[in-house]
Design a binder for these strands. Structure first.
Lengths: 340, 340
DNA sequence: GCCACCCATGTTAGCGCTAACAGCGCCATA
DNA sequence: TATGGCGCTGTTAGCGCTAACATGGGTGGC
């Protein structure tokens, strides 16, 4: 149906060379017109654009990256694609990087530090101009690889105090502590903590929660910690197990909203009064949490903003500038609702 | 803290040349050892790996892509990162492609066909070995660009009958129709349809739903269709609006589970009996839907499998083979639960 | 004992683009 | 009218890697 593609090179692609010939100019002018049309005269730019469109020219980033030192790629490693928290962060990153011409190259570590190292090695083959990693707990080799790559990097979600290290996030400990203080304030005494997917952030929330309870003179919480992936269904199961083990529990902090929502749904089904018999609180404040009846108390985390700010910080670093801060605390919001 | 990086090239990177020298061999052997170590003798391979590790060599995909015509990249365009359906599909794709050494290069079109075209153009600059697109409704220019790029492509989520076009998905119309038939079977008469984010798939569900109702002798449903992004909160609002406009409505099909869950939550809050006063059904069967009380009826869609199968099909095409089928229908499951 | 063949390895010549450095013409200034 | 500077355009030389074609030494058949 379509005419033959113009081609002269071995690979059959339309190259800059051909565009140059068609526009009656040199390759370098085509290159300049595409990268920043202000570098050539308006007439030449127009002629080049026209010739390129007519030929169906598509630039080759690989060749460009090879010839210049810039790839316009940013490597991003997140633990999981099935956790909205990280995906929203990704959306924030892309929203900032994409308009600047940068392409995210992402990989999923499944929460495994060794896998993160392997993935980073693979992503560095793209010669990214910058790197975005989730969390601050990495294998020593990962850190070494990062320094030896000489690429600017920003860590997301948690805050880092290491000199020379950049991070954007909030204090997970403080988030956990905020829930604890809220429970104490409300007068709950027999308090439980339920966690799954025991990644560093989950553990940090737990330790903040625990410390705040102790500081308030309450002993250690009843704990239920399982390594499995968090899910709504698991939250229901874990609520059952917690109440079976400690029937008099009057408040439970779930390390994330998936678990907390599952627990709330289970209470609804079993006819357990919330917060009458047992109070519930979660973490992350997923959209559903504000809509359930009773509405779920949760710690709202700024993951979308973290993505945006981390991307902005990386942009600064990639431009060779020094960011305003090397450690950006975006905080969190304690949303007390009806379950506590 | 670490010693100086070995370097001799202008860019300061450790190159294959240096690895070759250190291993006492030629570049091509290093290249072969890295791509398929069976191409060199075991001893040489070991020596090369060792030298590479000692020098901290990281291969350069840009150079490789330029020299070989294969980029080992796959371009993926999805409408949104904030809709789990597409993200789960992405996870399925990555699970298949990643072990084969392919890197996904993704972009988000925000449901805009013109944006999709722009993004595809950008992604083609990566010279991907294959392309994965969401849906079958594309701009004519997008299709033209796709053919002129001469890259194998697979369309996901919907099914396509165009000759020469590959697709993996299920019939959205049939999904909508299944809900309609279920409502009819249960004896509901005053039926409503609520939709948001009016993308082609949403509209297809609606038209399937409508046709099946008519086929059953029921007239057109009461409809509420808004262009805004779907969300749980919007589902609550739309339920209110539907019941305000048609108080006697006895069953409502929401075009996705976000809306349906929001509606259910709103019914819980307002004390509206579900399904006693009004029956509810959604689409996609998100994890929460099975856990609410009453549990939500929904059409379970195989988005994760779609991602996997589309990736497998693309793998076949990229290998120059002909896939078993050019149109893979993965079907759906109607999960009747308590809301209807 | 010669030759075809095969395996492991090496040499050469780019892939498509851009950095770096020329040129060239034109205008403002002395 | 000479001089310097500026804005635009062009030439040259790679960036790091791999395809394609050598090369060299061993093996087996007759």
């Amino acid at each position: 149906m379509s005419g033959r593609k113009p081609r002269s090179t071995a690979t059959g692609r339309v190259t800059m060379q051909e565009v140059a010939k068609a526009a009656g100019t040199s390759m370098i002018s085509v290159s300049r017109a595409f990268r920043d049309s202000a570098m050539v005269s308006p007439e030449l730019a127009a002629r080049i654009k026209e010739a390129a469109a007519a030929l169906g020219y598509v630039p080759d980033r690989a060749a460009s990256a090879l010839a210049s030192a810039r790839s316009m790629n940013v490597a991003v490693v997140i633990p999981s694609l099935t956790n909205t928290v990280f995906v929203e962060m990704l959306a924030g990153i892309d929203e900032i990087l994409s308009p600047q011409g940068y392409q995210m190259i992402t990989a999923t570590s499944f929460y495994a530090p060794a896998e993160e190292l392997r993935l980073l090695r693979g992503l560095l083959a793209f010669r990214p101009d910058g790197v975005l990693l989730t969390g601050i707990d990495h294998l020593p080799e990962t850190l070494k690889l990062l320094t030896s790559s000489a690429r600017p990097a920003v860590h997301m979600m948690e805050l880092n105090n290491q000199p020379g290290s950049y991070s954007v996030g909030f204090s997970q400990e403080e988030g956990g502590a905020a829930i604890a203080r809220h429970f104490v304030e409300r007068g709950y005494k027999k308090i439980g903590f339920v966690a799954a997917q025991l990644d560093p952030r989950t553990l940090a929330r737990g330790s903040g929660f625990r410390q705040a309870l102790e500081a308030a003179g309450l002993g250690a919480p009843r704990e239920l910690m399982v390594p499995e992936r968090s899910s709504i269904a698991l939250g229901a199961t874990l609520l059952d197990r917690m109440l079976a083990a400690y029937p008099d529990t009057d408040a439970v902090f779930f390390c994330n909203d998936d678990l907390a929502q599952g627990a709330l749904f289970r209470c609804q089904r079993r006819g357990i009064a919330v917060p009458g018999q047992v109070a519930l609180a979660g973490f992350n404040d997923l959209p559903a949490s504000a809509c359930t009846t009773p509405a779920l108390s949760s710690v709202a985390t700024p993951r979308y903003q973290i993505g945006r700010e981390a991307a902005k910080m990386l942009l600064e670093l990639m431009a060779g500038r020094v960011p305003a801060s090397f450690r950006l605390d975006l905080g969190f919001t304690l949303n007390i609702r009806e379950t506590s």
